Simulated scan of single mutants.
Amino acid sequence: MKRGLVTELHVVVYCDGCGDIYSDDDGESICFDSTHQAVSYINARSARVGWRYDGDRVLCVHCVAVIWCPHGHHFPDVWQITVWPLGTTTRSRTCEVCGIREMEILS
């Protein structure tokens, strides 16, 4: 059993483009046990959070957008409306090229 202050090795993911750190919803960096675990996690969640790993580099949602949409995003005309449990209503749409999401609070 480990006790007290213990130094351990872990993997933290940084964007190869801008240096941004991969974090959870609260802005805290996520620590992985191995590079393989980090890559698997990003690949499994990439469609939802926008980070991409191409086998060589890992890029954040903003760097992906710069590469794929240098002259502007291609959003569909139709918005998706969401009414949240606490009464907030939002509308959102996703760029058809890079996958970055645009969201607005309506009420």
Rank of each mutant, 00 (worst) to 15 (best):
F32D: 05
F75N: 01
D16W: 12
T94H: 04
R45D: 12
I67R: 12
S40H: 15
R93L: 10
P70F: 05
W79L: 00
L106I: 03
I81R: 06
R101F: 01
I42Q: 06
P76M: 00
G4E: 01
Y41I: 12
H73R: 05
V66T: 09
A38S: 13
E104Y: 00
D16P: 07
T88I: 15
R93V: 10
I21E: 13
S46N: 09
I81D: 03
Q37I: 13
L59D: 04
Y41D: 12
Q80L: 07
H71W: 06
T94Q: 14
T7L: 11
I30H: 05
F32Y: 13
L59N: 08
V11T: 11
A44F: 13
V49I: 02
V58Y: 03
G99C: 07
V11I: 15
W51S: 10
G72I: 06
R91P: 05
I21L: 14
T88R: 14
I105T: 02
T82R: 05
H73I: 03
R57S: 14
V97G: 06
S107N: 07
S23P: 08
R101C: 04
L106P: 01
C98D: 03
I21T: 15
M1H: 05
G72K: 04
C63F: 04
L106M: 08
W79M: 04
T82S: 10
I100E: 04
T82G: 04
S23R: 15
L59R: 11
L59P: 01
G19Q: 11
H10K: 13
E102N: 09
E8G: 03
Q37S: 14
